[in-house]
Design a protein around this nucleic acid. Sequence first.
DNA 1: CGGGATCCCGATAGATACTG
DNA 2: CAGTATCTATCGGGATCCCG
Lengths: 134, 134
Amino acid sequence: MATTTASQRREQARADYDAFLRACPTNQLLGRLSDKWVSLVVAALAQGPKRYSDIGRKIAGVSPKMLTQTLRTLERDGIITRTVTPSVPVRVDYALTPLGTSLAALLTAVKDWAETHFEEVRDARERYDAENPA
Amino acid sequence: MATTTASQRREQARADYDAFLRACPTNQLLGRLSDKWVSLVVAALAQGPKRYSDIGRKIAGVSPKMLTQTLRTLERDGIITRTVTPSVPVRVDYALTPLGTSLAALLTAVKDWAETHFEEVRDARERYDAENPA
DNA sequence: CGGGATCCCGATAGATACTG
DNA sequence: CAGTATCTATCGGGATCCCG
């Protein structure tokens, strides 16, 4: 009894922690931004509304599945709007909402940080790699 | 001939695109932040230097492997420092570098955005889910 | 205490093929 | 044109064991 191993305790801790993280807005947002395609789609639409295949062409390496999936979640979160024009053939336009625009601004802030400090990171890596031979 | 199928073209496109993305600082940073534990570690260390197991306790759901892995990449990128005190038993302290502190500031900006707009996102989701029955 | 090495599993990105 | 459905391969993440 009391075979409370470290992993068991950690498992319990993770359960609590996961619940906490899921409730945390910041973490949810980070999860969104982390999604490989989200930032690219937002960046593409920041230049103006686009059609489905225009986005696909702009991003150039995405499969239809991932593009649709990404667009759906962004639509659900109120980041973009989806407008269907029932012509022949069908025409679907995507555009940023005001919320999406403010997200794009945040993305720009991240971009600025990355560009500002990129050299520091690069130098740090070279130093680290030099000191730690494989 | 000219059996250039859509998937083949996309494959080529992805090769180019991947190279482009890897060279893009912004994307690299997003890749870092996207890492589930990075933001948590940075946040933990933002309150001051900590020992390995202190961080582990603070984060509470992380496995030793992921913690070490996360700390290593952050050290390599010059975000944190690792200080070994060869006492018995060994003591290892981690702390944010100036670069790490500025990253923490960026993280705060993200956090602010998330908290500011969280309700909008929540409302948008509820609306979407109501309009799109499973 | 701090961490490396190894095996394993579930999630998920992506290819392919089909539909309205 | 704008998707959807299915299947598969990959891989991050975790458990476990062991070393300095």
